[in-house]
Amino acid sequence: MRYDLPRPAGRLLLTPEDKEAPARARRLALLGLGEHPEPALDAYANHLAELTGSPYAMVNFIDENRQFFAGLHRPTVAPRVVKADGSTPVMGRELSRDQGFCPHVVVRRKALVLEDVCDYPRFAGNAVVDEFGIRSYLGAPLIDSTGMVLGTMCVLDVEPRPWGRPGLETIKASAAELAARLERPEADGLPLL
């Protein structure tokens, strides 16, 4: 799928156009997702971080303007990244749509594996690379029963990571399982984890 659009001065469009964003925002509101942290989704992110050995893991819902990490795992001691002004950033629960890699996963509707983001000019200039020192990404879409991509499940590292086929299979299976449970967490009698 092509999602590069011409830009003046030869710049790449870093964030793909997301035509489903308004419908996704309505679907998220209907499901009651993407507005506040969910302890069960935090637990899911913690489990995913442990499973993959990643310092960061997220369950991310994306609307028209922002990304919201309803499930978030970050390391107790964050990797030290010092910005030019001497400050150290802390990854919070919100990120604009023009940052990170998840908006690409949502538009592509398929998993994205970046073993070293610096190997890809499209992604190396992303703000999370400079802001948080992110060097690798593995994410998969959360697709509900209506076919709507609600957001993503992802893991990140501050070091390049050879995720390989096992990492790809893990993230895809985890995302499919969670997407099914998001629509009916009580109906199957099972907690999210």
Rank of each mutant, 00 (worst) to 15 (best):
A173F: 12
E159W: 02
N60D: 13
G151Y: 00
S136W: 00
S87N: 02
M91D: 08
Y120D: 15
F132A: 02
E177Q: 12
C154I: 04
V59L: 10
A45I: 03
D144R: 02
L168C: 07
P89E: 01
L33C: 08
S87A: 12
V77R: 08
L30C: 03
A175F: 00
K172T: 12
A127K: 05
P166S: 07
V77S: 13
N46G: 14
R11S: 15
R26C: 14
V105Y: 08
D4I: 05
G100E: 00
E177V: 04
L112M: 13
C118G: 10
R66C: 09
R2K: 14
L12H: 11
Y44N: 03
G92A: 08
V158W: 10
N65R: 11
L41W: 08
S54A: 15
A40W: 05
R181E: 09
L12R: 15
G139I: 04
F101Y: 05
A23R: 14
L33A: 11
K19Y: 14
A29S: 09
G167K: 01
H104P: 11
A25N: 09
V59Q: 06
R184T: 13
E20L: 07
P103N: 02
L182M: 14
E169P: 05
D130C: 04
R7H: 14
P75N: 02
V90F: 12
P16T: 07
L142Y: 12
A176I: 10
V105W: 05
P22D: 15
L14G: 13
R7K: 15
S145A: 15
D63L: 04
A70P: 01
D157V: 00
E131D: 12
A57D: 06
L193I: 08
D98G: 09
T152R: 10
L14W: 11
F123H: 14
D116Y: 10
V81W: 00
C102Q: 01
L48N: 05
V81I: 13
E94L: 03
V113Q: 07
P39L: 03
P8H: 13
E20D: 13
E183C: 07
L48Q: 09
C102I: 02
P79W: 11
K172Q: 15
L178R: 00
F69E: 06
T170P: 03
T88I: 06
V129H: 03
P89V: 01
A175R: 00
P75D: 01
A176E: 09
A45N: 06
E115G: 07
P121G: 11
